[in-house]
């Protein structure tokens, strides 16, 4: 890293600064305005408004309310994209085999004992982020990715062997993942399937009661807004993301001797 590089980088960033100052001279207003913008006011009015029962979704976190309640299909497809990308990993590494008994090396004793203490705390914090997603920033994906830290730490500090001995295998994680996806689909169809036989108006992905349909997910639990289907979606999304990303991490860190079987499988396909 010589002086010339750093000088060039500095001048480049100053150029970007000059350009952005030129663009922003018009003024965009303060970043944190003291009063609500009109768009924000309309979102707040339509997402958490207990006085107007036909508009509310009982979710204090407006972003989660919009993503899961108003644009639920959007997130359903995002989940499917994650599912498909992990299926692609499975296709690329097809024919792998899990070998147990390769021996544990791991890191030092200090790291091991700290990981034993910290991993349950991380998982608990991830679950809290996920199921509080309708009240505070967070949600299923975020909570799942926080909990995956614990899994990757265990893989790196203890080794894959430790996970195999605890009964965590890739096929079980895949099963958990498929069950989570099924649960999301069933939740989105549940109110419509209840309403259809009894001839009551109900919609797919419906959460709270609307003007023309009286069916509703459970809204309030002990004075806490539960936000019905948003809570369930967050929970199942947590399960999907946790098991899916742990699965991907386990596939990616396979040992050399386990990867040998992939070559043999590839020869069979050729």
């Amino acid at each position: 890293m010589n002086r010339k590089d750093i000088a060039l980088a500095l001048s480049l960033s100053l150029l970007v600064l000059a350009l952005s100052l030129t663009i922003s001279l018009e003024g965009l207003g303060p970043i944190v305005p003291r009063e609500l913008r009109p768009l924000g006011a309309s979102f707040v009015q339509n997402s958490y408004n207990p006085w107007n029962a036909s508009l509310t979704s009982l979710s204090l976190n407006v972003v989660t309310a919009i993503v899961w309640d108003y644009r639920g299909l959007d997130t359903l497809y995002e989940t499917l994209v994650l599912f498909a990308s992990i299926a692609a990993t499975l296709v690329v590494l097809r024919g792998y085999s899990e070998l147990s008994g390769l021996g544990i090396k791991g890191l030092s004793d200090v790291s091991k004992s700290v990981t034993v203490v910290i991993a349950p705390l991380i998982v608990v914090y991830g679950i809290a982020t996920a199921i509080h997603g309708h009240l505070t920033p967070g949600g299923g994906f975020q909570g799942g990715t926080i909990a995956v830290v614990a899994a990757t730490l265990i893989i790196a500090v203890f080794s894959l062997e430790y996970l195999y001995r605890r009964g965590v295998s890739t096929s079980r994680l895949m099963l958990l993942r498929i069950l989570g996806l099924l649960a999301i689909i069933l939740t989105s169809l549940s109110l419509a399937s209840i309403g259809m036989p009894s001839n009551v108006n109900a919609y797919i992905l419906q959460n709270m009661a609307k003007d023309d349909s009286a069916l509703s997910m459970p809204g309030v639990l002990f004075d806490t807004p539960l936000a019905g289907s948003i809570f369930l979606y967050n929970l199942f999304e947590f399960i999907i993301v946790f098991s899916g990303l742990t699965f991907a991490a386990m596939m990616l860190v396979l040992r050399e001797s386990e990867l040998e079987s992939i070559k043999e499988a590839a020869e069979v396909y050729e």
């Binding site: 972003v63 989660t64 982020t129 920033p137 967070g138 949600g139 990715t145 926080i146 995956v148 830290v149």
Partner: peptide, 12 residues
């Protein structure tokens, strides 16, 4: 919300 999504993807 975006921070919580972006940190695992880019840092992890």
């Amino acid at each position: 919300d975006l921070v919580l999504t972006y940190i695992p993807v880019s840092v992890g």
